[in-house]
Computed example of a mutant assay.
Amino acid sequence: MYFSSAVALGLLTTAIEGTAVLRFGCSQITVERLDPLVNPGVTPSPHIHQVVGGNAFAASIASTDVSQIANCTTCSFSEDKSNYWTANMYFKARNGTYKRVPQIPNRYLDGEVGGMTVYYTSAYDNSKVTAFKPGFRMLAGYADRRTDGGVTKWNAICFRCYNAKNFGGDNAAPCSDTTVDSVELPTKACPGGMRTTVRFPTCWDGVNLDSPDHMTHVSYPESGTFETSGKCPSTHPVKLPQLMFEVIWDTSAFNDKAEWPADGSQPFVFSQGDNTGFGQHGDYVFGWEGDVLQKAMDANCFGATCSALKSQSFTDANNCAIRKTVNEDVDGWLTDIPGSMPMKEKRFAA
């Protein structure tokens, strides 16, 4: 199933029949080297992340009901105290220095400061999805991957170049339009910025809220994709909402080819030392209050408004803050990416 631009942007007043599509913005709550999922308690963690959501975010987050720990959120649904985070993107200039690429709001989400757009989508075949439970957390993507394969099989990551600014949110469908989407970083300048997406597994084993690798308790469909109503494997029979991150990177300040590498290669690199894009990944710690996410899915809520949920203005959302733990420059012209992450060539089987 393909969503038109109008549907993805929330210009329609009703959702596709039988399908919930929550689409809402979350401002940044911090940009620093912390990773309570992969590197709990490590300060600083190996590479830098941009983080949105509730103010329970810290070097470690207890495996409990996060909504009872946080008391505010940078997301436009005030009952969503979850945390969502991704690696940062940097521009590497010809002289070898680095500059963090800022995130900008999606269309019609004015007021968001940096951050990302979050989607929760119910089943396309109208079958029931089971909302995540308190204590649930997961990871999508492989930070060390530098070749095709893995989550790219499920259209889980992709990139899109924009020719005009403020053109995000135009496609909530799979990353399958090869004329505009790619699973590796674009090699051309993007005048209006670059969109990246991360889609999370949609099948759960029904028992474990986490696993040692933060992946094996969940699964992508055994065949097809979530969008094609692919069947969940018998080992992971519970169908979850599809969680998706959409980040719009404002690369427009870095389009001067005279500043690009002398060999003409693309100049962008993710903060874990990935200049391919195959290592794009996302982290998630569930923190919705009570059963409100289940109610929103069952009510087929759509866009950034939902009668089953409480909304807040970005003015209020942007007042949510945490004290920074790691003190280092992340925004100036830097001689290295924070953490001095090397360009890794580690390879995985497809």
Rank of each mutant, 00 (worst) to 15 (best):
L9F: 00
A87G: 07
C161W: 03
F132V: 00
Y2W: 12
T117G: 10
I69M: 12
M1V: 14
G149R: 02
P44F: 14
R199L: 14
C26F: 02
Y2E: 03
C158D: 12
R347L: 01
F270Q: 02
A321R: 08
S82K: 14
G114T: 07
G111W: 10
I337A: 06
M343D: 02
K324F: 14
V330G: 04
P342K: 12
L293T: 05
P267R: 05
L293E: 05
F77A: 15
M89Y: 12
T305C: 10
D181F: 07
F159I: 04
K231G: 11
G332S: 01
A173S: 13
C75A: 14
M89L: 05
G41M: 15
K99F: 06
N106K: 02
M341P: 01
L240T: 02
P338H: 05
G54L: 09
N88D: 08
M1P: 13
G53F: 02
S229D: 05
T13K: 00
H47V: 12
V151S: 06
T325W: 09
V66A: 11
V330R: 08
V183F: 02
E227Q: 03
V21Q: 05
D263F: 03
Y142N: 09
K324Q: 06
T64N: 07
K295T: 10
S234M: 08
G282N: 02
K310A: 07
R23I: 09
G290W: 01
S182W: 03
T19W: 00
V207T: 04
V238K: 14
N88C: 11
S311Q: 12
L209N: 13
Y2I: 10
F159P: 12
C301Q: 12
T197S: 13
M341G: 01
F270W: 05
W333G: 05
V285F: 06
A56M: 10
S219F: 09
V269M: 08
G111C: 08
Y220A: 09
P105N: 07
Q280C: 09
P267K: 06
L209V: 10
G279F: 11
A140L: 04
I157K: 00
G25W: 09
V180A: 10
G10I: 02
F200V: 14
F270T: 04
H214T: 10
Y162A: 05
